[in-house]
Amino acid sequence: MASLPVSTTINSDDVEYLCHADESLLDVLRDRLGLMGAKEGCGTGDCGACSVIMDGRVVCSCLVLGAEAEGRNIETIEGMADGNTLHPLQQKFIEHAALQCGICTPGFLMAAKALLDTNPDPSEEEIRFWLAGNLCRCTGYDKIVRAVADAAIVMREERA
């Protein structure tokens, strides 16, 4: 099978790769580009562990073909912190003990970032429904919701 050349932008960097026509963006990120922060929990879009942001929308990278990334702008967990400065969401997840095993955490962070980028002051209900596509089996979501709400406060203060 011939591979397809793809030129895309990942975490603000120009990236080029070859992928098979039926290869998911998740497989490309993990197996070809070494960006293993996105996790495969199901491969069918049901768990959100592979969430990345594509052109401003959070998507399951397992349900995007690698070939579709051509010309798009992709954000992954590896690009979330600014060097050694954690994003407020990352910081609040640690402070609130919003992770236990941590396998779902990159996906939650990407989804929560997409939320706060568009809605700086979400209600608890808005947070819960926005994050319904990210499964966590450890925390019961309580501390995750608190961390997102707290990060929203920090981000609003930073903007003000």
Partner: peptide, 9 residues
């Protein structure tokens, strides 16, 4: 239909 992630696609 589906999650936020699915909605985006």
């Amino acid at each position: 239909i589906g999650s936020t992630q699915i909605q985006g696609r």
